[in-house]
């Protein structure tokens, strides 16, 4: 088993537990052991975009120091930092880039954090999807035990995996990484033009109405093309597209619920893993009736 430092993020410990459990189980099948970094803290979930705002980078840098310590102790085989949550991925990777590009600012941050070892730079951030692509999708194909052939799903990338360019894990305009994975596990992939349109993100706190509008557009666009479910890798997209269906239903009475999966829930299904890793109770729209209908 290859050990890799793993940053879960706050949401994966609460509302996104289904994502974490299914991802750990999936990774295990692929020969990866996710070693949770100790004393991790919230990464900040969004990067600060102003030039002089360094204090908001500290949270991420502190996590890099933990990874650095882990690497120095030789506990892991892969020195990259693995994340699952798209927002954490985006934030950590952006900060990693900023620290690489602006050594003066890194010095300032190191001086500020006088109780920590200095961050020397060089921690790279990687998403589980990228690791899967590295292994090759044929490898995935060989592990599939259960056919999900009849399930029609549409991948939903959201923003943070693809934008801005410097942190994108695939082409920002024509991504294929999720399609490739879903094809490999034998799902019927439905393409939707709104797969990388923003779901409203944190506006869900202040302006839920906007999120309802965007969610409705995204879901209906996928449904029109035949999708029966969406697949995502972001717990906030999952909240906005899944939990907020309650509000969508209030706005559009003839709206029908559509389940939203995390991509790891589908891989866990395809690999024939124990059902409890998927924790479908935590999916707001229960996908089990759909799976039952499809005899999965």
């Amino acid at each position: 088993m290859k050990k890799i430092p793993y940053y879960p993020g706050c949401t994966l410990k609460t509302t996104g537990k289904n994502f974490e459990d299914s991802a750990i189980a999936t990774a295990k099948v692929l020969g990866l052991k996710l070693l949770e970094i100790d004393r991790w803290n919230c990464c900040g979930t969004v990067t600060s975009l102003t030039q002089d705002d360094l204090i908001h980078h500290i949270a991420s840098v502190r996590n890099f120091i933990r990874v650095q310590e882990m690497n120095e102790r030789g506990e892991v085989d892969d020195y990259r930092l693995l994340t699952l949550c798209s927002m954490c991925y985006n934030t950590l990777k952006s900060v990693s880039n900023v620290m690489q590009e602006r050594p003066d600012d890194l010095d300032k941050i190191n001086n500020f954090m006088d109780r920590e070892e200095d961050y020397k730079g060089g921690v790279t951030v990687v998403h589980l999807l990228e690791l899967i692509r590295e292994m090759g999708f044929d490898e995935i194909k060989s592990k599939v035990k259960k056919s999900l052939g009849k399930l029609k799903v549409s991948p939903y990338y959201g923003c943070t995996l693809l934008r801005p360019k410097e942190v994108a894990l695939d082409d920002p305009e024509v991504p294929t990484i999720m399609e490739d994975l879903l094809n490999a596990i034998g799902v019927d992939v439905i393409d939707s033009p709104k797969k990388s349109m923003c779901c409203g993100s944190y506006q869900t706190v202040r302006n839920p109405k906007t999120v309802v509008r965007l969610g409705y557009e995204i879901i209906e666009s996928a449904r029109k093309r035949g999708a029966e479910a969406l697949v995502t890798s972001c717990p906030l997209c999952a909240f906005n597209l899944d939990d907020r269906q309650k509000e969508i239903k209030l706005e559009h009475p003839d709206f029908e619920r559509m389940p939203v999966f995390y991509f790891t829930q589908l891989t866990a299904l395809a690999f024939g893993l124990k059902k409890d890793v998927n924790n479908f109770d935590l999916n707001f729209t229960d996908p089990r009736p759909l799976l039952k209908k499809k005899k999965i």
């Binding site: 803290n41 919230c42 900040g44 204090i55 908001h56 500290i58 949270a59 502190r62 500020f112 954090m113 109780r115 920590e116």
Partner: peptide, 9 residues
Amino acid sequence: CVSCNTCTK
């Protein structure tokens, strides 16, 4: 929280 650690200090 911005994880500045001032509280711990």
